[in-house]
């Protein structure tokens, strides 16, 4: 059996490890996910359609996907920049900065949400400078973007960093010796090899942002139709013991994010393909 599934390898234990992998994936990922569809199935198509196309739910999709996208784009740009600084320069406190990058991973998201809210509210440290300019962050969609940027930011840095580290310095020197300017060198020589990693980082940050709940609920203010994210609606439905309604909305998010991640993976495959030929 094993012989037919995989090419014969000198490393033993294919059957055992493959079996373990499948059990593990099923228990941790597939069975819980399939329950979403199982629960949803208790609704009729009509009921399902009504739940997932409720105007309040539609508004939350728009906010969740929109804000997640914007936040991931911001992270892609600034995450690349930070990874660049951390890889290319030596400065005092570099390791400290490197450690700080991981904080959004480690910090409980609720704490992050409260901290962000107090900093960006109209009398917070940053908010009070923005308020006179007419920019309100806390309790607006902008606040949602800030929170999602915060939690997704390490993904981009951590995926780009190793690739940048492995990028040969001589590529730049070669480009310079051929007369390319610094900008040309970055755009034509350094950026293309980074692109697959950048897309991975973007996809991870985006996926994380879609499901984010803890940090967003504080800073968003949760106004229906305006600053309500989809995960919040799911929680609200759960609190009302409307399990079928909650899973129905979850299924939409799940399918949408699956499609998006699939597209990003395809893009990544296209941009990274050339390195693996031959």
């Amino acid at each position: 059996m094993a012989k037919r599934l995989a090419k014969k390898s000198i490393i033993p234990g294919f059957g055992l490890t493959m079996g373990y992998t499948l059990v593990y994936l099923s228990l941790i990922v597939l069975i819980p996910l399939s329950l979403i569809f199982y629960k949803t199935a208790s609704l009729s198509w009509k009921e399902y359609w009504d739940v997932v196309t409720d105007p309040r739910v539609i508004a939350s999709y728009r906010l969740t996907f929109g804000a997640s996208f914007v936040a991931s784009v911001i992270n892609a740009v600034f995450g690349t920049l930070i990874a660049w600084v951390l890889v290319r320069y030596d400065f005092i406190g570099k390791r400290l900065v490197d450690g700080i990058v991981d904080l959004p991973f480690a910090l409980p998201t609720a704490v992050a949400g409260i901290a962000l809210t107090s900093v960006y509210s109209d009398n917070g440290w940053i908010g009070k400078f923005l308020a006179p300019l007419g920019i309100k962050v806390a309790f607006t969609p902008l606040g949602v973007i800030v929170a999602l940027t915060f939690i997704g930011f390490p993904f981009v840095v951590r995926t780009i960093q190793p690739v940048l580290q492995d990028l040969d310095h001589q590529l730049e020197e070669a480009a310079f010796s051929l007369g390319a300017s610094r900008l040309q060198t970055f755009v034509r020589v350094l950026f293309p090899p980074l692109l697959p990693a950048l897309l991975t980082g973007f996809a991870l940050a985006f996926a994380r942002a879609l499901g984010e709940y803890g940090s967003v609920i504080f800073i968003s203010g949760n106004m229906p139709m305006v600053t309500e994210v989809t995960p919040l609606l799911i929680v609200t439905k759960l609190e009302q013991y409307d399990y079928a309604g909650a899973t129905a909305i979850a299924s939409v998010v799940l399918i949408a994010s699956f499609i998006l991640l699939f597209i990003i993976n395809c893009l990544q495959w296209v941009s990274g393909r050339r390195y693996f030929i031959g």
């Binding site: 590529l171 020197e173 070669a174 310079f176 390319a180 050339r274």
Partner: peptide, 20 residues
């Protein structure tokens, strides 16, 4: 003078070709 202005052709031991 910077590298770009020197008009030298440089060949590296490990080629440093642009992989993409």
């Amino acid at each position: 003078r910077r590298v770009q202005e020197r008009k030298v052709g440089f060949v590296f031991q490990h080629y440093a070709l642009f992989q993409h």
